[in-house]
């Protein structure tokens, strides 16, 4: 186990290194010139060159990357070109909001997805089952941007149950969590359904029914715990999905997280912020996958990590 962990962490470092090289190279190749953005329209050619030199953007790619990397290993993500603040500060200020939103989304997708999957499995082959599976299909395929706006329109504007975007109370959290969680809920309902159907076929379920236990007791006490565990193990992998989702959802709902930060930085070619958020997301994805792998053997002793 320990050897496995060390190996995985080693791999993680290489993945992050790869992500940083690729992102840095893509941003380097971008035709937009960040210096012109900083310098403004009135700047003379000399001012532009001055700023380029101060930021070291006149250096060759390899020198620029090396400087970024040496800063990175010391925990320095650089300074934002346009916000003129430390990127680490900007991310730290916004990370809690993103984590809260992800927690809300996980709660949402589990609650919606598991319930749908359970009901569909029990009513397998009926109209209920088909309806639920179509709904899950819609949930998986609907663009999050549209889902977010529709939720806002119906539940916040028309019905007035929730605030129209913003951040602060639990009521602000509900709609963005649902919007972000709906995609995962679609997946979970399908996984839960097949996992439950699998378990319901097992001998011990038949035994439980045969010894005269009520249908509900069998379902909730015997089948559910075994069916739910493999599904829950997937949460770690979800974090990757969330990282792309928050960019859209946070912008729609005015949620002050790192997704919104990334979106604004991309529009303004603020390279240090784009780099910083990409790396933080990559870290989260790597950690999430690792977590999923570590948890699995505890849930299913048949799987062993080597």
């Amino acid at each position: 186990m320990a050897a496995y962990l060390v190996r995985r962490l080693f791999q993680a470092i290489f993945i992050l290194l790869g992500v940083s090289v690729i992102t840095f190279a893509l941003l380097y190749l971008l035709p937009a010139d960040p210096v012109r953005q900083i310098a403004g329209r009135s700047a003379t050619a000399q001012t532009v060159e001055n700023i380029r030199h101060q930021l070291g953007l006149d250096q060759p790619f390899i020198v620029q990357y090396w400087r970024y990397l040496t800063g990175l290993v010391q925990g320095d993500l650089g300074r934002s070109y346009l916000q003129r603040s430390e990127v680490s500060e900007l991310i730290a200020a916004r990370l809690p909001a993103s984590l809260l939103l992800m927690a809300g989304a996980i709660a949402c997708e589990l609650a919606i997805g598991l319930t749908m999957g359970l009901v569909a499995a029990v009513r397998r082959g009926t109209v209920t089952d088909q309806t639920l599976m179509i709904a899950s299909f819609v949930g998986v395929s609907a663009p999050q941007f549209v889902v977010g706006l529709l939720l806002l329109y119906f539940f916040a504007v028309q019905l007035g149950w929730f605030p129209i975007g913003g951040y602060g109370t639990w009521r602000h959290l509900v709609l963005p969590s649902v919007a972000l969680g709906i995609l995962g809920a679609g997946w979970y309902s399908r996984m839960m359904r097949s996992s439950m159907i699998d378990v319901l076929r097992q001998d011990y379920i038949r035994t439980a029914r045969a010894k005269g236990l009520a249908r509900g007791t069998v379902l909730l006490r015997h089948a559910l715990p075994n069916a739910i565990l493999p599904v829950i193990a997937m949460i770690g992998i979800d974090i990757g999905l969330f990282m792309s989702g928050i960019v859209v959802i946070e912008s729609v709902f005015g949620w002050p997280g790192i997704g919104q930060l990334a979106w604004q930085a991309i529009q303004r070619v603020d390279i240090p912020i784009i780099m910083g958020v990409t790396l933080v997301s990559a870290c989260a994805i790597v950690l999430g996958n690792l977590l999923a792998d570590i948890v699995t053997p505890f849930i299913d002793p048949r799987i062993r990590l080597r």
Binding site: L152, I164, G165, G166, E250, S251, V252, G254, P256
Partner: peptide, 18 residues
């Protein structure tokens, strides 16, 4: 000043008096 508000959301909030 509340930042991070999409113009369309801002308009809806204006209509509600927020």
């Amino acid at each position: 000043f509340e930042v991070g508000q999409e113009p369309i959301v801002a308009l809806l909030r204006l209509q509600k008096g927020e």
